[in-house]
Write a protein that binds this DNA or RNA. Structure first.
Lengths: 216, 216
DNA sequence: CGATCGGTTGAGTCATCTCAACAGAGGTGG
DNA sequence: CCACCTCTGTTGAGATGACTCAACCGATCG
């Protein structure tokens, strides 16, 4: 676990009233790697914020095919699904800490309007991401998908060296590919000197322009 | 244009405060087939409701690849994108009538809370659909995609005979396929007596169970 | 030190795409 | 009213990107 996934990130997102409230009111819980945080079909009773580690949301088909909805990093809110029941489950990418808050508590909390706005904000961000992901899944090639993924992760983490807390299987299920294809594309991007992997879970962008162009 | 796309549909959706407000306050506009209603990158200044006809939202890549975000039928709200700018453009599927309302007018309108809730509701519905579509685009086969599409359209239109106001190209760009593949899958579903096409724009479900099973 | 797990690489297959021909519906003008 | 054209959709044949299956490799762990 690198320091990059530290609690500090949460504090930096000062504009976000929801994260603020989460920090003050939420209950801190820890989850082991691959542990389920909530299940598909669970009532959408809580809101969550990542403190350390990372989280994935997952939807399963009856035959085991898996689609990952989104990855969440420290400071990010998740579990804000619209319906009364979760359609995606959430699992810990690695050992992690999460703040949990009852949705009803949000309503009861003072400074109500600001909080409502914050939930609204987070929901909008979710929608925006999902809409962007539609284009990726529907129309991009394997290479473009992987390039987009790396660019996106680098953008969200900011740092020079970017850690990937998720496995190749997770990446594949996020991009609608197989692990083998993901691996091949990563090798390809590396041999064209666009990115460089220090280990299989950490990389650095060597040619931002080329990466953005591929991400299309 | 069949009667199925009539204004009456809007009235039936009585629970929906937003549609109600749109009807009272919105400006009615007509658009010709394939005309643009708003463009990618336009500011998200208005909310829209379909009265008659149908609408598609579209995202284009620089090389012309196209992803359709959603189709909208009479009584449905669209244009509710989260950011300050549209990331999808909207076009008329066929000649159609649309109600247009300034977002700022929504805020000024009496019975404010109810309206806010309605916008909230519609946004949630958008998110739900987008999340469902992720699984379809990422993990379903061509056959499953087409079956899901037909089942979904039938479900939304309710009627026995279902009209498809969109072209094969639209369907293909919605499902992340090519027109040829869509056409082949439709032929296949028809020869297995799961659906029946009266014309290429109108069908009827002959075996609901089999269709749902395929839609997975 | 062997076993296991996650990741990479290779070879062959298959679903979907591409390219091309064709068919039918609808519109237009003579 | 017919001949023609265009546009949309269907069908066929061959190409290909991504998948499947299998071997291998290195790191981690008991």
């Amino acid at each position: 676990m690198s320091l990059a996934y530290a609690f500090e990130d949460l504090r930096e997102d000062g504009r976000d009233g929801l994260a603020e409230a989460m920090r003050r009111l939420g209950v801190r819980m820890t989850f082991a790697k691959d542990e389920e945080i909530y299940a598909q079909e669970d009532p959408t009773e809580f809101v969550y914020a990542v403190v350390t580690g990372g989280v994935r949301t997952i939807r399963l088909m009856s035959d085991g095919r898996r689609q990952i909805g989104e990855f969440y990093y420290p400071g990010e809110i998740f579990g804000l699904e619209p319906g009364p029941e979760h359609r995606y489950s959430a699992e810990a990418l690695c050992d992690c800490e999460v703040l949990v808050l009852k949705r009803s508590a949000l309503r009861a909390f003072a400074d109500d309007e600001k909080l409502e706005r914050a939930v609204w904000q987070a929901t909008r961000r979710e929608l925006e991401r999902a809409q962007g992901h539609l284009l990726l899944l529907g129309r991009k090639t394997a290479c473009e998908k992987v390039a987009s993924f790396l660019a996106d992760m680098a953008g969200r983490r900011g740092a020079e060296a970017v850690d990937l807390p998720m496995s190749r299987q997770d990446i594949a299920d996020y991009l609608g590919l197989t692990i083998e294809t993901v691996s091949r594309m990563l090798t390809q991007l590396q041999s064209s000197k666009i990115v460089e992997f220090a280990s299989c879970r950490q990389f650095r962008i060597r040619n931002q322009g080329a990466l953005s162009r591929l991400a299309a």
